[in-house]
Design a binder for these strands. Structure first.
Lengths: 274, 274
DNA sequence: ACGCTCCCTGTACGGTGTACGCGTCCCGCT
DNA sequence: AGCGGGACGCGTACACCGTACAGGGAGCGT
C-alpha cells in the first residue's frame, strides 16, 4: 500500500513506520551484525553504564565493529533508542486476558508493579519516555492491556483514559525519581540511606535552608526504622492502593449519577436522591 | 578508603551547597554579567528553542559574551540547568498558609494545577526533573507547601508521603507526556489533532499494528467532538478528582482501622470489597 | 608603582552524531 | 563462466559540544 508515493505527504516519521526490508537472509553468517543483536547490545550497555555513557562508538566497540557499521541497520541514534525502549517494554508480563473471573484490581496492580519493575530495571527508560513518543508493538500491547483491564473496572468509557493516566503516569513519575536517586547514589558509591543522611547533614549546615528542610525531615523521621528503599516501597504500595480506591470511588460516583438520572425522569425534583 | 579525607568528606556536591560569594559588588557596572541575568537568559532560551538546542555557546551568544565567560558564574552546564529549574519552580503560586479555614482539597487542587501550568509552560523542566535531584529553595518551598496541605487531609503521618507521591508524581508524568506531544507537534508544524490523525492513519496502513491500535482508537473516538487538548484537560481533571477521592477513601480506611483497633483490637478485614 | 582580585577572552582537547564514499563480499542472472 | 548489483562494513571528515587552561585588562588597596 505504501508502495505508492513513497515520499508522500508529511506523515510523522518514526522507526516503527519505516519500511523494514521484508527479509534478512544471510542466516549462515553468524559473525555479522543484525538488528536484534544491536538492540540487545544497546539495552545491555544502557543497563550497565547508563544513558550518559552510551554512544554509537561505544556500542560499535561492544559489537566489534566501527561506529558507522551500525548505521546500516539504524537511521539515527534516536531510532535505536526507541527500539531499545520497546525491547524493554517487551519484558513486561501482561495478565492473562482469557481469565474472565480475575479481579480487575489484581490485574491492575499486577500491571503497575510489572511496569515498575521494568522501569527500575532499566533506569534509562524513564528518561527516554520523556523524550520520544513510543508506539512500538510491545508498548502498544502493554497500553492495550491496561485499557482492557481498566475497562473492567466499571468506569464509564469517557473516564477510562483519565483513570489510566492517574495510575500509570504516577508509576512513571515515581519510578523516574526513584531511579534517579539510585543512580545518584551509585555514582557516589553510597547507599540510598547514606546519601540521604549526607544531604540532610549538608543542608542542615546551611541555615537558610534549614527551615525549609525541617518539614521534610520530620516527615521522614516519622517512619524511622525503615530503610529508604523500604519507605519507597511502602509509599508505592500505598499510592497504588490509593489509586484503586480512587477508581472505585469515582465509579460509585458515576453510578449514583446515572441511577439518579434514570429514577427520576424529572430533574432532581422531590424524590431525586433516593 | 576513608583515608582519603582530603576531600573534606564526601558530601554530595551540588550547586545549592556551594559557597556563593557573600556579596556582588560592582553594582555600578550594569553592562557586566550576573548570575540572575544568566539564569534568566537560560530560561528564556530553553523556553524558546528547547533543551536540545541549548548550549553554552548559544547562551553566551545570547548574552553577548564568549562561552567561557559564563563559567565564571557557573561551574558546569548541569549546575546552570539546576538553577534554571529552580527559577521555574519559583513561578509556582503557593497557597496562603495562614488561611486555616481553607479546604485542603481546594489547596491540593490549586497546587497540582499550578504545578501543571509551570511544567507545561517550561517543557524542559520535566526532562530535567528526571535528570537532577532538585533541592533549590523554590523547589523546597513548593514541596513543603504540598506537605503542609497534605497534612491537613487527615491522613496519618506515615501515609502523607505516599499520598503526595500519588498526586504529584502523577502530575509530573502527565505533563511530561503532554509536553512531549506538544513539542513533537510543533516540530512538525501541526496541531495535536492533526498529528493524532496522522499517526492513526499511518498506523492503520500497517496491518500488523492495526489490531494493536484498534482499542486505543476506539477509546478515543468514544469522546468525539473534543479536541485533543480538551480531552487531555478532561483527563487531568478527572484524574485529579480520582486522587482526591482516593485520599479520602484511604483516610476512611485508616479511621476505620484505628476505631476497630480501639473497639476490638482486631486489625484485619477492613473493607469488604475484596 | 605595585600586586591582587574580578571579570572576560582565545585557544585547544577530547568527545559526540552522522554524511559521504570506498571497498569487498556473495547471490542470482545471463 | 562471467558479471552486475545489492548487502554490508570501514575510514575519513565535519560541525558542534562541554570545558580546562593560560592569559589580558580593568579597578582597587597599599
Amino acid at each position: 500500500m505504501a508502495a505508492t508515493s513513497d515520499r508522500a505527504g508529511k506523515q510523522p516519521k518514526s522507526v516503527w513506520l519505516a519500511e523494514r526490508p521484508p527479509v534478512k537472509r544471510k542466516a549462515d553468517q553468524p559473525a555479522g551484525l543484525d538488528l536484534d543483536k544491536i538492540v540487545a547490545a544497546t539495552v545491555r550497555l544502557l543497563d550497565a553504564e547508563g544513558l550518559a555513557k552510551f554512544s554509537m562508538r561505544r556500542l560499535a566497540a561492544e559489537l566489534g565493529v566501527t561506529a558507522m557499521s551500525v548505521y546500516w541497520y539504524v537511521d539515527t541514534k534516536d531510532d535505536l533508542l526507541e527500539l531499545a525502549m520497546d525491547a524493554a517494554a517487551g519484558e513486561i508480563d501482561l495478565p492473562d486476558e482469557s481469565d474472565e473471573g480475575a479481579d480487575w484490581r489484581d490485574q491492575l496492580r499486577h500491571l503497575a508493579t510489572e511496569y515498575r519493575t521494568m522501569l527500575l530495571a532499566h533506569p534509562w527508560v524513564p528518561r527516554l519516555l520523556g523524550e520520544y513518543i513510543n508506539f512500538g508493538p510491545h508498548s502498544m500491547a502493554f497500553s492495550n492491556a491496561t485499557l482492557r483491564v481498566m475497562a473492567r473496572s466499571g468506569l464509564s468509557k469517557e473516564s477510562t483514559s483519565g483513570a489510566l493516566a492517574a495510575v500509570f503516569q504516577f508509576v512513571y513519575g515515581f519510578c523516574t525519581i526513584q531511579g534517579l536517586h539510585r543512580a545518584r547514589c551509585r555514582a557516589e558509591g553510597s547507599t540510598l540511606d547514606e546519601y540521604f543522611q549526607q544531604v540532610v547533614g549538608a543542608v542542615r549546615s546551611r541555615p537558610e535552608f534549614a527551615e525549609a528542610m525541617e518539614l521534610s525531615v520530620k516527615a521522614v523521621y516519622a517512619r524511622k526504622g525503615l530503610t529508604a528503599e523500604q519507605m519507597l516501597e511502602h509509599d508505592f504500595a500505598f499510592a497504588l492502593d490509593l489509586q484503586i480506591a480512587g477508581i472505585e470511588a469515582m465509579r460509585e460516583r458515576e453510578l449514583a449519577r446515572t441511577e439518579e438520572g434514570r429514577d427520576g425522569g424529572r430533574q432532581e425534583g422531590l424524590d431525586g436522591a433516593r
